[in-house]
Design a protein around this nucleic acid. Structure first.
Lengths: 196, 196
DNA sequence: GTAAAAAAATACCGGTTAGTATCTCTTATG
DNA sequence: CATAAGAGATACTAACCGGTATTTTTTTAC
């Protein structure tokens, strides 16, 4: 009951990396088997279908890691301007898992799955909503504390910031260079200050 | 020499719509043949491979239409704040081809192709660069005319705005509702005014 | 230690994919 | 109207895909 958990997790983790690099649809079961050194029998013992595995990746790997990287920083107390900027800087510039040429796993999943798999889209929408709400809360706190102007609409700002992040990941992939991240971050800082 | 051009164009146009709705990789040649009522012989007479057709779609359909919708409005003279906002409003809310559930074709292509096809990525990066430069120019004009503050960095602003657009398309697909477009547009307006 | 259940290995299947080879029809030109 | 090239139709293939059936090995419980 222990080693089997290990192979299951190994399948999930390696698949996650592979899918992050190659895309979900272009990563075949055989690809996964080749890199994990797991046989088909083992794979299908743990997962009924490829999509079930995909969903497990989202729920068991993506969500927790998302919570760590995207949510936790926002729960800190202090000036939202600093909190949000630092979070974005850390996600874009310091995170070692995410590569500029591959973008953001959550965003990639979304874009790739949206046209044809509503279960995935739903799961990913939850992520996105959680993030937005966390940003909203962070800004509301700032308004209460007086570091953010009273007329600022938290919801609007959250959507605006979030969109910018998804977008700059897209641009980063196109340019294949982190320098656009820095350009974006500079303007994000100016924008955030305009809320003070 | 006339009818053949028509079938070629018909293949491109129908494929474009199909790919826009279903994604490039999940749209098979047979799908295309079924909807275009064209036979495989005809298809492969006009295009050597599926990817060649994909590139033709980008260069012959996407680029010109992009120029119309995304570039032309920026060449108008006047206040960049109004020009840029009106353009975004028109792209997001008034364009009849683009559906919220399918996002923006240029963005979809990018996300889907990036991991495995550098030719596509290159072509799409050109689009993105052109758009950015057009926004940069528009803002520079505004600075000269005095409607935009002197300390505003056009390049940064352009990247920031562009990213927001790619991103809100992503969010729109997740939410499957245009209401996030309106939320984003409101904040875009505030942001643009902060540049005055 | 052995039997039962869990986990994994192997071989295979039907369907789909992009692409090809070959044949036929159409059209433009003399 | 003949003919040759242009355009399109048909039938096929080889590789790959996700998934299954069956067997073998490993682990757990007694």
């Amino acid at each position: 009951m222990k080693k089997s958990e290990a192979t299951r997790l190994s399948i999930l983790q390696k698949s996650f990396e592979l899918i992050y690099e190659k895309g979900y649809q272009t990563t075949s079961i055989d690809d996964i088997l080749a890199t994990t050194q797991v046989t088909k029998g083992a794979f299908y013992y743990h997962f009924k279908t490829k999509d079930e595995m995909g969903l497990a990746i989202i729920n068991e790997l993506l969500k927790p890691s998302f919570a760590n990287t995207f949510m936790n920083p926002l729960n800190a107390s202090g000036d939202p301007v600093k909190i949000i900027y630092d979070m974005m800087y850390s996600i874009l510039m310091k995170n070692e898992f995410m590569k500029v040429e591959h973008g953001c796993p959550a965003s990639n999943f979304t874009q790739e799955m949206a046209p044809w798999h509503s279960d995935f889209t739903k799961a990913l929408n939850e992520l996105s909503e959680e993030w937005k709400n966390a940003i909203v809360q962070c800004i509301k706190n700032g308004k209460k504390a007086g570091s953010i102007r009273a007329d600022v609409k938290p919801e609007q700002v959250a959507v605006f910031i979030m969109s910018g992040y998804w977008g700059i990941r897209n641009v980063g992939r196109l340019n294949n260079s982190k320098s656009v991240y820095l350009t974006w971050l500079k303007q994000l800082k100016d924008y955030l200050h305009s809320l003070q």
